[in-house]
Write a protein that binds this DNA or RNA. Structure first.
Length: 112
DNA sequence: CATCTGACCTAAT
DNA sequence: GATTAGGCCAGAT
């Protein structure tokens, strides 16, 4: 896969996450057709130019990936709360907020 | 080629 | 829950 398609797959998939919901790094990689590449997601999020929904990406257990209390963590919390998401102990409840898309309509939208 | 490094993940303790 | 160990992948050194 060309580098550019890897990046676009990730960002295109991320763009589909509905307001008020989140997704984990690993799940985003899976949905983007890049299994076992959670770390690539973080890499491309860091590179990406605004505006993207980077704040919707959290760890598989719902925790914010940035160090607690860091400026970036604060920014992410702020953005998530702005969407109505409740955060406690630096983490979101994945059983409530994790995006669970219908895989078939998703594949149709992404066209691959 | 060997090692290290990450906005990671899972399973086990 | 918190921590650890091992796994994982791609880039950088």
């Amino acid at each position: 896969l060309a580098e550019v398609t890897v990046k676009s797959r990730i960002l295109n998939t991320l763009a589909l996450v509905p307001k008020g919901q989140v997704i984990s790094y690993g799940k985003l990689a899976d949905l983007a057709g890049l299994p076992k590449r959670a770390r690539m997601v973080s890499k491309y999020l860091k590179q990406a130019e605004e505006p993207i929904n980077w704040h919707k990406v959290v760890r598989s257990d719902g925790k914010i990936a940035f160090p607690a209390g860091s400026l970036q963590a604060q920014e992410q919390c702020q953005r998530l709360m702005a969407e109505g998401i409740v955060i406690r102990k630096n983490k979101v409840n994945m059983s409530i907020y994790a995006w669970q898309p219908d895989i078939y309509t998703l594949l149709a939208k992404l066209e691959y």
